[in-house]
């Protein structure tokens, strides 16, 4: 565990040495800020005319996760592929650390970076809580944030796994983006096309468990298991890719 933490800390610091990190932060926080402002504006208008549902910030977290489909690959693309390109992978693979620890450290560093951005967004429910009476449903907000962490964890783990396969970070980016697109938009498309049946495909969708359950305050075991399984799968792919590099 020590090694995972050491690698994660370095990776986290590295993000802030790169302009890409600030672009990613801006690309997430700016739309969320605009979206939150719109929520406040529409809610206050509705309140003046005596209608509309009480506002919440759950859609903001949904937007965060949706943006991760595009920005997640940018966060993970260089994590291992760049080490291979620069030759530092040789350094890591001759250090007394397990391959899994190396991959998990990379994933944890990326997750810590995303969580840093997520922490900033907590300001939205706090502000909103002051505007609505009798306050917002904090249990749902907490569930939503746990969901956000779970989805991000799964996405970043898959991204790290793919990054371990390639030496070129752009190849890693596009393959990860393609996978996220498939899991977000297409994997459960037959459900709506078939008009009945095939609901099981919803369970494979990256968005379904979050949007339909966890973000609504419904922490389903299926959802939690799905995201944790994807996380484990990503770490497994990454570790196996490193093993294969050794034997090649």
């Amino acid at each position: 565990m020590n090694n995972i933490w050491t690698i994660a800390k370095r990776e986290y610091d590295t993000y802030f040495n790169s302009p890409l990190a600030y672009v990613v932060m801006l690309a997430i926080l700016l739309p969320l800020g605009i979206f939150f402002t719109l929520i406040l504006l529409f809610s206050s208008q509705n309140a003046m005319f005596g209608g509309g549902a009480a506002p919440d910030t759950l859609q903001i977290n949904w937007l965060f996760v949706f943006l991760m489909v595009f920005l997640g690959p940018a966060i993970t693309m260089r994590l291992i592929s760049d080490e291979a390109r620069m030759g530092t992978l040789e350094l890591m693979l001759t250090a007394p650390i397990k391959d899994f620890e190396f991959v998990a450290g990379k994933w944890l560093g990326a997750l810590m970076f995303v969580l840093s951005i997520a922490v900033v967004t907590i300001v939205f429910p706090i502000v909103l809580n002051n505007f609505v009476s009798p306050g917002i449903d904090w249990k749902t907000v907490i569930s939503s944030y746990i969901g956000l962490i779970l989805v991000s964890s799964a996405m970043l783990s898959l991204g790290v796994g793919i990054s371990a396969i390639f030496n070129n970070q752009f190849a890693a980016f596009f393959v990860t983006l393609g996978l996220f697109f498939f899991l977000w938009f297409f994997v459960n498309m037959p459900v709506s096309l078939l008009q009945g049946g095939g609901e099981i495909l919803n369970y494979l969708s990256l968005s379904y468990h979050f949007a339909q359950n966890i973000n609504q305050g419904n922490m389903t075991l299926a959802g939690i298991t799905y995201y944790l399984s994807l996380t484990a799968l990503g770490l497994f792919i990454g570790t196996s890719a490193i093993e294969i590099r050794r034997w090649r």
Binding site: N2, N3, T6, I7, R10, T14, N17, S18, M86, G87, T88, L89, E90, L91, T94, A95, P96, I97
Partner: peptide, 29 residues
Amino acid sequence: RKRVGYLPETVPLYTDMVVFDYLKYMGEL
């Protein structure tokens, strides 16, 4: 790997790191 010190031919280094921090990182591992 615990007992071997290795200097690869290409001297791979994290160029974005400060010398001290880099060595400290490798030492922590």
